[in-house]
């Protein structure tokens, strides 16, 4: 009866915690990450491991320097940042490049602003854009997939899977004319970032998040609409110069952005209306950058631009105060 923690009501709690939230999100990402390892082999595993380790280490270091509880480095948020960054990188990225990007994401993207909850930008995307600008060659070195063969109960790991003599290839976003089948796009059996190719697994993970009520479906739906609507119209008018809606939805980082990156709690708006604007804006910007920009993929830029707009969105689009609708009575 002497515990003097906050004595204000309520005297009960739903039992949720941010740490639990972060680890559930990470768990929902795992199938897609596993698929990446399956397709791209050991190099993918190395990128994943170095990103996550670098993220957690730099978080720990920053917390020590800031004289905070260093145990918070395992609260799942740094791990998630590292995981998301790794999934958006090509499997061929050298481990030190990946680790550098990850450390940048945590230190410059998050801790400099005051740590968890204070970063205006999505740290993982900030890390990715930094790497894309500083290491353009490493970040666009796409490899052909090297799925192990499962013949006669034996697993045959090719040299490419083990990271030797891998074959360079173009991603679907680079080379739309070649055209990939729908099955290849959905399953992820095509060149691309290590965790972005398997749209179906990312979609399932995302739906699990919605079902578990970790994220609200507003941002994913809005993002897919914002990307899909202009893609549909443009493709109908000029199919030879614009990709189809399915191509846009299923290739590159669209699915990952829709369910895992744009929905980042800290850097997205909080109100329902705000989330619609944010999602639609992300989708539209992705389409614009992909169709007219000089970079083949626009997810990271689109999310960062909308992150910058979040304070404005939150300022103007607030939920309606209960009863303010019946203004005729006032």
């Amino acid at each position: 009866m002497s515990k003097m923690l906050a004595l204000a009501s309520p005297h009960t709690h739903a039992g949720t915690s941010t740490t639990r939230l972060m680890y559930i999100v990470a768990a929902c990402l795992l199938p897609a990450a596993a698929a990446g390892v399956l397709y791209f082999g050991l190099p993918a595993l190395i990128v994943l491991a170095s990103c996550i380790a670098a993220a957690c280490l730099s978080e720990w270091l920053c917390l020590l320097l800031r004289r905070r509880d260093w145990r918070a480095c395992m609260d799942g948020s740094a791990l998630l940042t590292g995981l998301l960054l790794a999934m958006s990188l090509p499997a061929s990225t050298p481990w030190w490049v990946a680790a550098f990007g990850s450390a940048f994401a945590i230190i410059i993207g998050k801790q400099v602003f005051g740590g968890l909850g204070h970063n205006p930008f999505n740290p993982a995307m900030l890390g990715r854009v930094m790497l894309l600008i500083c290491f353009p060659v490493e970040l666009t070195d796409w490899r052909a997939i090297a799925t192990p063969d499962f013949a006669d109960g034996e697993i045959i790991l090719s040299a490419a899977w083990q990271g030797i003599d891998a074959i360079s290839a173009a991603t679907p976003l680079y080379n739309m004319a070649e055209g990939l089948s729908l099955v290849e796009l959905v399953s992820g059996a095509h060149p691309g970032s290590l965790g972005e190719t398997s749209s179906i697994l990312i979609l399932l993970g995302g739906l699990a998040l919605v079902w578990l009520k970790i994220i609200r479906p507003v941002i994913p739906v809005a993002l897919l609409l914002g990307l899909g609507a202009p893609a549909l119209v443009a493709h109908l008018i000029a199919p030879e110069s614009f990709d189809s809606i399915l191509h846009h939805w299923l290739s590159g980082g669209t699915m990952l952005a829709a369910f895992f990156i744009a929905t980042d709690l800290v850097s997205s708006p909080t109100s329902n209306k705000g989330q619609w604007v944010f999602g639609l804006g992300c989708g539209l910007l992705i389409w614009l950058i992909r169709s007219f920009g000089s970079y083949p993929e626009g997810v990271a830029f689109a999310v960062l631009i909308m992150n910058a707009a979040t304070p404005v969105i939150d300022h103007y689009l607030r939920p309606a105060v209960f009863g303010s609708q019946s203004a005729h009575l006032q």
Binding site: T12, H13, L21, D75, G117
Partner: peptide
């Protein structure tokens, strides 16, 4: 279920 509070993550 009273625990130490953490930073707000603006989850909404």
């Amino acid at each position: 279920r009273q625990e130490q509070s953490h930073a707000c993550v603006r989850c909404g």
